[in-house]
Design a protein around this nucleic acid. Structure first.
Lengths: 250, 250
DNA sequence: TAGTGGTCTAGACCACAAA
DNA sequence: TTGTGGTCTAGACCACTAA
């Protein structure tokens, strides 16, 4: 940057975050707050360049993130438009259960099924790049949507990265918020597999469905900055209530 | 482009495709052919700029596509590296069953279960943006991996875009190849939903599993250029044999 | 210290859509 | 013809890694 004029709008020059990320977050939050309706014309590149006093490449970088999120789409010669809300990708961004349910127009709820410290099995240790027997904080929660069971989430955290996490109240605050605020763990990336499995007796009881009913099973390893594995997560979604959406390229 | 010198390597200046896409495809195919091993150092941006005689931004645009595919990853100060092959995203790119199975190290096979012309139901017509009753070419195929049933695919094509498609031999050639070569239909984009469902009697028989066994059910609409819906596809994957992988951002 | 990738600027030409 | 987004160039400064 050669230019040290104060940025217009709410771009803070003292922030460490890159300009395009600040602009991306600003625009993303504006879209989520509903400042435009689906199908509305979004500000053009030249408008945003002037508004935030940045170059075209920087604006484009921010807009590309919004396109990747499925929040906007662009048409050469016509302009940039706000997408239908249903298109928002839940297979691209890490999103909390609470946020996920709100996007679907459902009221989220949580019940604690169990929590405690356990030693890592060989399989989990390999996924988390730790030693077998290392301490894990295990939290098992039932997730509700509009008061009805939707999913069971079993989270295993590497305990030495977040000692005392089990004392926190994860019914009021999201686990991600606690990890970030109390332990400085920012979840930047995750890898997951998706399968269809049959409900065990225990899962059927928790989810109020029949034994052997189909479940969407997600197994996820979440990484903090510098690619350190922090969490091993298993999610069992009710097959009759939960659907994933995503977009593919040719 | 101010500069009309011949591009080095196999970049063809007479091609209509953008430079960054040509470079992306070239590098992608080299990685797929195994010209580097997982973890190997990939050529740096400056190397690629010189090799293909393009600017840094163009090289970076090509590399960003490879990162989005999960084929490479980049570390500031260290370099660009080739990813482990298992990381390759099958939830990002449209990929044929044949290609999918080869990537998993399985031998693909196909058996035709049925084919014919049918009128579009109201639901399907809405998804394909056509009128109810419009003619669809329906192709139902059993997909095998190493000789064992893996999935059932039911494809519904808008028949007026590909008249006579049912006369083609889709056991020898992939449906995508036929659509592109015979009808000029390039599939550029798709939207899909993923669910867990119980196997019906018919599905159980085709897939050689028990009735009500869990299936991974994918419902997909594929679009050609200019966002015209061309195909409505339903895929039923055996839950005990098929797993999806993908990566999420924070 | 040299080389890497991450960010950013200022400019250009183009294809495309709409008035 | 005007304004849009798509592509591309040439240059710059930075943070980070490894020697």
């Amino acid at each position: 940057m050669h230019d040290h004029r104060a940025r217009k709008d709410r771009i803070s020059p003292q922030s460490n975050a890159p300009l395009y990320q600040q602009i991306y977050q600003l625009l993303r939050d504006q879209i989520r707050r509903g400042e435009w309706s689906p199908g509305d014309l979004f500000p053009s590149e030249s408008t945003l360049m002037e508004k935030y006093d940045v170059s075209r490449a920087t604006v484009r970088q921010a807009l590309e993130e919004l396109v990747a999120d499925g929040l906007i789409y662009r048409r050469r010669g016509r302009g940039t438009f706000v997408s239908l809300p249903s298109v928002e990708q839940n297979l691209v961004r890490i999103v909390s259960f609470t946020e996920d349910m709100r996007q679907r127009g459902l009221r989220p709820g949580t019940a604690l099924l169990g929590a405690g410290l356990i030693p890592a099995t060989e399989t989990i240790a390999a996924k988390l790049e730790i030693e077998p027997g290392d301490e894990l904080a295990r939290i098992e929660r039932l997730r509700l949507a509009d008061g009805e069971p939707m999913s069971v989430e079993v989270s295993c955290l590497v305990h030495r990265y977040c000692p005392g996490v089990l004392e926190e109240d994860y019914t009021k605050n999201s686990l991600r918020q606690i990890l970030e605020r109390q332990y400085g763990l920012r979840m930047t990336r995750a890898e997951q597999t998706i399968q269809a499995v049959a409900a065990s007796r225990a899962m059927a009881r928790h989810l109020a469905i029949e034994v052997r009913a189909p479940l969407l099973f997600i197994e996820r390893v979440t990484y903090s900055e510098y690619d350190i594995p922090v969490e091993y997560l298993r999610i069992y979604h009710r097959g009759d209530r939960y659907t994933l959406h995503n977009e593919l390229r040719g």
